[in-house]
């Protein structure tokens, strides 16, 4: 499966032989994958194949599920993130996450974005925090729409704005990787287009992993695509290759819509 032009010289994250169990049930079976810094990686696959599960094991959000157990090795900049010396709090600051449904906190827009920098002590004073909040909102493409109402509740925004607010919230702690789990599935086409545009802009600054059910979206935003099926990684390659010339029969069936 690995091809020479696919190997990433300096992968941001490396997963090797990862298995994830929920109690007795195995949800991910021996998955190995590299995530490059300057790339957007898309995870595709039928529902229940374990995309979210794998994504959540990349920033140890699976720790919050009592029954979940991860084996294998996942590295961030060469460090094992499941090692006892790894600090989850820092790990999650470095590997941010955006969820399927926008989940702004019931606080002001400003406090939503400022929440992360505050808890991590990234802004020594209010002026610094103002700068961080503003920059994050600008990067998330939301600044112009909300700059006059930063004190309003984040929940008062539209769905698409809320999702961009969540992206801004994740950006504000200055992460190295951003994981997005179907970030557009709750949004209309216009809001979706905005988020896709945003992903384009963020590429290069962050390593981005996006889970999506929308083939066109994967084709539009990503450079690498991984196809999961029944908990295994079936095929991983350049997005153009996967969509035009898949090597595996199952991949082909899936992207041509024969199942899934």
């Amino acid at each position: 499966m690995t091809q020479d032009d696919l190997t990433i010289a300096d992968p941001k994250m490396k997963a090797h032989g990862v298995n994830v169990f929920y109690g007795e049930k195995q949800a991910i079976n021996d998955v190995s994958i590299d995530v490059g810094t300057d790339l957007v990686t898309a995870f595709i696959g039928p529902s229940g194949c374990g995309k979210s599960t794998f994504l959540r094991s990349l920033n140890r959000m699976n720790d919050t599920v009592a029954s979940a157990r991860v084996t294998g090795r996942i590295e961030l900049d060469g460090e094992d993130i499941y090692a006892p010396s790894m600090d989850v709090v820092q790990l999650r600051a470095r590997v941010g996450m955006v969820f399927q449904k926008p989940n702004p906190f019931p606080k002001s827009i400003y406090d939503n974005v400022g929440y992360g920098p505050r808890i991590h002590g990234l802004a020594p004073n209010k002026a610094d925090l103002d700068v961080i909040v503003e920059r994050a909102l600008i990067r998330a493409g939301l600044w112009d729409e909300v700059k006059d109402r930063l004190a309003e509740s984040g929940t008062a925004l539209s769905g698409g704005q809320q999702q961009r607010l969540c992206i801004a919230r994740a950006i504000a702690v200055d992460p190295e990787v951003i994981l997005m789990d179907e970030p557009c599935s709750a949004l209309d086409p216009i809001a979706t287009a905005k988020i896709e545009e945003l992903i384009h802009e963020l590429r290069g600054k962050y390593a981005i992993v996006i889970v999506t059910h929308n083939m066109q979206q994967a084709a539009r935003v990503s450079q690498r695509t991984a196809f999961f099926h029944l908990g295994t990684l079936v095929e991983y390659g350049k997005t153009t290759d996967i969509f035009t010339n898949p090597k595996q029969e199952r991949t082909k069936d899936y992207i041509t819509g024969r199942y899934g």
Binding site: F105, I119, R169, A170
Partner: peptide
């Protein structure tokens, strides 16, 4: 639960 996950995913204790 999403609220809690959102906060934990930002690295909050």
């Amino acid at each position: 639960q999403a609220m809690r996950d959102g906060s934990l995913a930002l690295g909050a204790t």
